[in-house]
Design a protein around this nucleic acid. Sequence first.
DNA 1: CTCCAGATTATTTTT
DNA 2: TAATCTGGAG
Length: 730
Amino acid sequence: MFSLDLSTELNSRQIEVVKSTEGPLLVLAGAGSGKTKSIIYRVAWLLKQQKVAPWNILVVTFTNKAARELQDRLEKLLGYSVRSLWVGTFHSLCLRILRFESRHLAFNSNFSIYDDDDQKSVLKKIYKAHGFDIKKVPLQKVMAYLGKNKNKLLLPEDLDSMDSDVAASGEFMKSFKEIYRLYQQQLLLNQALDFDDILLFTAKLLQSNDEVRSKYQSMFRYIMIDEYQDTNYAQFQIIFQLANQHRNICVVGDDDQAIYSWRGASIRNILEFERDYNEVKTVRLEQNYRSTMSILDLANAVIAKNYRRHNKLLWSELGRGEAPELLSFEDETQEARCVAEKVFGMWKSGAKLNNIAILYRTNAQSRNLEYAFMQQKIPYVIVGSLYFYQRMEIKDILAYLKVIANPDDNESMLRIINEPPRGIGQTTINKLIAHAGKYRCSLFNCLTYIEQISEINSGGKRKVAEFAQLMASFKSLADKANVLEVVKSIIEELKWIEHYRNSKDQKDISRAENLIEFVTATSEFSERFLRENERLPLLQDYLPHIALQTDLDKVQDDQDTARLMTIHNAKGLEFDTIFIVGVEDELLPHRMSMDAQDGVEEERRLFYVGITRAKLKLCLSYVKFRRLYDTFYYPKPSVFIQELDPRLFLDGKEDPMLQMAPRTRPKTNKVILESEKHYRIGQRVFHDEYGYGKILNVDGVGAAATLTISFEKGTLTKIIGSFIRTDNEA
DNA sequence: CTCCAGATTATTTTT
DNA sequence: TAATCTGGAG
C-alpha cells in the first residue's frame, strides 16, 4: 500500500502546507523554498489521504511549462497518472469553461483566439475606417489601456458611468472609449476573443450566471494557485467566485518576486489575501534549498529596502560559499568580453555550460554578449527571444486552421486569402470586404457565392472560386480526419515547403524548416491525444491547445549551452552560476520606471529575482561608459548596489566608483558628462507655456542642449535646455 | 506585386 | 544608432 512519507521529504513548515487542507491558506514562499514540491505533496495528500476525487481538485499555474512539470512530478510521486485532475494556467482553465458554456455566451464554441498581433491589426483597421489619428491616440497606449480595463473587468459601457482615468486626458479617453467599443464589436463579429477576453468573459460569466457558478463551485472542492503575486483583478475574481462555496483555497506566492505589474498583475492580491478571505492560516517558507548564505545575505539586504512587502528572511544550510562578485568595466564590450572569458574558464575547468546563465534587463543588451560568446566559441542559446508560434509562417498556417474551424474569423481570412500568393489582389479583396460589410456576412460566406458578386471581374472570380473550393475541401477533411492529416494536407496542397525552398532568401529556407517542425509538433500532440483520450484528435481539439502555447520549449534542457536571457525570463529557474550585467542606474532600475516609487520597487524585486537564481556563484557587473542610440553617457552603479554594505561582496573593498567622486573626463563630441548632464531621454520635464512633456532626444550638452520634447498637450518641438524645468529642480 | 527610401521608434512580455 | 514599418512609385 502506497503511503506518503512526508517527514523525510519535507520540513515542518512544508508539512503544514500539505496538511492544512481545510479553509483559506496563504503560503508565503521565498525564492527556492520548495513551493512546487509542497504543492505536489499537497495534491498527493488530498488524493491519497483524504480520498478526494481528482476532478474535485484545481491547480492553477502561471505557465504551461510549470503545469506540465507539476503534472509530471506528481505522477512520478504517485506512480500512476491522474488525468482528471485540473492542472493548468488561468487561460487554459478559462478556455475550457468558455468552450463548454458557450451557450451562455455571445460566442460559439469554436471561437478564435487573437494574439497581440491580431489585436494590433484589428485596431489598425478601426483607426483607418473611423479616422482616428495615430499621433493623438497612440496604438501602444490604446493596447495598454485595453488590457488595463479588461483586467479590471471594465467593458466599454462600464467606462461611461465612471470618472475618466486621471492619467489620461479627456480627449484621449473619449477616443479610447470609442475604439474600445468598436474593437469589441469587431471581435464579436469575427467570433474571436483576445487573451484578456478569455479571463474577462469567464469572470463575468461566473459573476452573473448562478447556474454556471454553482456548478464549478461545487466541483472545485480544493483550489491551489501558484505565483499568486502575479495575478490580476480578473484572475482574482475568477478564483474568488470559484472558491466561494468550499473555501478550501491555498495560494502560494512571494510578494518579493512580483515583477509583472505592468501586465496588470496586482501585488495587492497577495498582500491583502488575509483581508479578502477570513480566518486565513498563513505559513511562511523561508528555508532556502538553493543558494549559499552569502548569496542569500545579499538577496535579503537588497529586498529589505522595499516598503510594500511581507517581512521575510531567507536562510539555508548550504554554507557560506563564495561571496558575490561586483565588477566594473569601461564599457559594454569589455563587460561582455570579460563575462565570456570567465564562462570560458569555468567551462575549461569542467563546469557544465547549462549551469551558467547571463541575465540582463533589456533584450538589446544581448548583442554584445552574443558577439563575445561567438568570439570565444562558447555555445550559447538565447532563451525566449523568438517565439515559435509568433513566426510569420507559423501564424499563416494557424490562420488556415482558424478559418477552417471558425469561418467568421475575417482577420485570419485576410491573412491567408493571398498567402501564398494566388493572384487575389487588393482590389478584389476590397470589393469582397465591401460586399461582406453590406450584406453583413463573413468573408468566407462571400466566397461561396462569388459568382453573384457583380463588382468583381471574371479573372478575380476564377481565382477566388478556386480558393473557395480549396478551403471547402480542407473543411470537409477537418470534419472527420485527424488534425495531423489536415495540417499535412494544407502544407502539401499549397506546395508551401517547395515555395520556401525555392526562394533565394536564407530566411525562407528556415521558414520551410519551421513548417516541418510544426508538423512534428502536431504529430506529437496527435499521439498524446490518442493515448489519453482514445479517440481521433480533431481540429477543434488542437486549436485551443495551440492558441495558448507560446514557445516550443523542448530541445534546450539537455543541450550543454550557456543561457542568455532577460531577468524576467529567468523567473522560476536556477543555475549554479549567474551573471547579471548592466547593474546601473537607468538600466536597472530602468529609466522608464524611475519616475514612481512603485516602479523602482518593482525593479528592485526584479534585481532580487535575478540574484536568487544563483545556487553557488553570483557575479554582478556595471560599466562606466554606455551608449544609448546615438547618445553616450556615463552611468552610475545602480542605487540597488549603492545602498548596500560593500562587505556583502567579495573583498568588500570600496569601489572608487561607489564613492561617487566627481570624475573629470575629456570632452568628446556628443558625450554627456555626469556632472553636466541635466537631461536624459525619456525624462519628464515642465515648460511654462507647453506644460509637462517627455524628452525624445538630447542634442548637445547641459543647459545649452537642444531637446526634442513631446508635450502632453500634443505639441512636439525643439527647445533649448535652459527653458525647461526638470522634477529635480522643482 | 515588389522594391526602395524615408519615417518611426526603441523595457520588461507567464497567456 | 539601427532595425523595422509604411507608403508611394514603377
